[in-house]
Design a protein around this nucleic acid. Structure first.
Lengths: 336, 336
DNA sequence: CTGAAAGCGCTTACAG
DNA sequence: CTGAAAGCGCTTACAG
């Protein structure tokens, strides 16, 4: 492998000069500059990032920690992060924590040893957050939280999210406007804030429209396919009639539709259903799903942008960015 | 940050000794060993991977290059890779090439500079393969190809795949056994080998059963949702009656179902459909999809295992592993 | 068996 | 403006 010193010898300058020329911080004659660049090209020089990282203390790597890369929301988010990173000559280490605090800790440990320049988190368990994050921040690690962000009060950190409560409110209100009064809700796992917030939006919408909030209409899910399926069975077995469902993500909505069909209920004739996320698939299932479309790719991209700005400036990012979602009306909902 | 030299001073030994003790290659007294380990723990020592990588020429990073992380097959594959990597103290850099040779080249370039220990590829464009891969191999870079692997003849490289032709044959034959004779095929992009192989399996199955291979029954897709949708419209517009479809992946099957429904065709009463991949969703769509279930997670895990063995032993892996898939019968197919 | 020393390939204060 | 030198924090031949 060609090294800086090889170029330096051939060009009769010092390695330091070559380094400066290659990084563009050189201020000398353009003759020298051109000559060095030409030789570098001829020799096929490729900087050794390991060496430059060690010296400069910048690894040019960021990490993305997600709860579960197989949930379609996250690959889309990941794409946004990756695109922004690549355009800035950063690589992305993917950490799918599987919602497991042990794995999460293991990943953070390795990222710290690796001196990654920054971390984008979606969802971090309470324990990890309380113990590890403050220490990382104290060590000047740059961090941005996205989608599943911790509570505002805890720490002054950067966040990129949507207003989950407001968007869930919009989704529920949309059903109310269609004339539905008996609206069930399949929530996400209630140990996550986004699940709580979406549930709260549902509740507020009912309340503001003078509809009762009934515990029998609410079932907790996991954001995964099977939990939507199970939730519908639980709801139906309660024998309390409802005409619409607000599922707090698209995957659960898909599972719910499956269960409704199995019980010979038609959508939207018998039951209207609204999802949340707007994954590409939501348009292609049968019937196509009315859902709250989040700007997922943009969330990832924005989070990465904030993080990289923080890394470059050396200033811990603290922005709180709230992106807009919108209810996309498709075939799964119908006026009552 | 605590460094090896800090431990060495406190323990009155040389940094070299500390290094050896920490890596477990120390052969001296267990008294010294215990003392050093105790001090390391007390000080909260964390090895700087940047430094050890530079010296040892092992970055403890592998990369995974996939054509498109948003296609559900790949997150599942990625999980397998990640789990195996993590258990061996490796991190994974994710590179979603978007099937773009320019991005692919850019990623390879950065991975080379970063001295990653190895690369797992799924799909690489022809140009990249011919130009860059041999050079990387010559530089002792370890590589394993998975799923979308290049042709056998090109280079002696490690491969993990299923027998796409055989599995497609099985899928088609399953439809034939149900009595279908007019079977359409929605292929993947025919510039990929897996798409060609699956098409070939379809053809062979027809041929072996003395059914004609009709060009009007074959439409090329892209492995994405919308292409299945479009393909069905093309097929129906050709006005040549068929009773079954073999879609060369599940996403296209889902798109196809959508299009069939829009044209008021019932599944499986009017048209039977078989997919390929066995993504979790295939079980939850309506009707649930009969499909060729690949061991996706295991493919990723196996590829990572091969790669890590190669890295540890220093021997370029060359195994060719073929995993088994199976036709899972669900609701989307029916006897004619 | 242990330690001193060199070195991985860069970058960066610092001196001239 | 340029170059010599030190140093990032490890690991590893090598000498004792």
């Amino acid at each position: 492998m060609v090294r800086i010193i090889d170029i330096a010898e051939k060009a009769n300058v010092s390695p330091g000069t070559v380094s400066k020329i290659l990084k563009g911080t050189y201020t000398g004659s353009s003759e020298t500059k051109d000559r060095v660049l030409k030789i570098a090209k001829e020799l096929g020089y490729k900087p050794n990032l390991l060496a430059s990282s060690l010296r400069s203390k910048k690894s040019k790597i960021i990490a993305l920690i997600v709860p579960e890369i197989t949930v379609p929301f996250f690959p889309e988010l990941s794409r946004g992060v990756e695109d922004e990173a690549r355009e800035n000559d950063y690589n992305v280490i993917l950490c799918s924590s599987n919602n497991d605090p042990v794995l999460e800790a293991k990943y953070l440990e390795s990222l710290e040893r690796r001196w990654v320049d920054g971390i984008i988190f979606s969802r971090i368990t309470g324990d990890t957050f309380k113990e590890r994050i403050p220490r990382l921040l104290a060590n000047k690690m740059k961090m941005v939280f996205v989608d599943r962000v911790p509570s505002e009060n805890d720490l002054p950190i950067a966040r990129v999210e949507i207003n989950n409560e407001k968007e869930a409110y919009k989704a529920t209100e949309f059903l109310i406007r269609l004339g539905h009064r008996d609206i069930a809700c399949i929530t996400g796992p209630l140990n996550t804030r986004i699940a709580q917030q979406r549930l709260e939006g549902y509740r507020k919408a009912l309340k503001d429209n003078n509809l009762p909030i009934r515990g029998e209409f609410i079932v907790e899910g996991t954001f995964k396919l099977d939990s939507g399926f199970k939730a519908v069975n639980i709801l139906l077995d309660r024998n309390i009639p409802f005409t619409a469902i607000f599922a707090c993500n698209d995957l659960m909505a898909i599972g719910a539709i499956k269960a409704l069909r199995k019980r010979n209920l038609r959508i939207p004739e018998d039951i209207s259903i609204v999802g949340f996320d707007g994954i590409p698939l939501s348009e292609y299932i049968e019937p196509s799903l009315t859902t709250v479309v989040q700007p997922i790719y943009e969330m990832g991209r924005t989070a990465a942008k904030l993080l990289l700005e923080g890394i470059k400036s050396g200033v811990e990012p603290k922005d709180h960015i709230i992106l807009e979602a919108k209810v996309e009306v498709r075939e799964s909902t119908k006026e009552l």
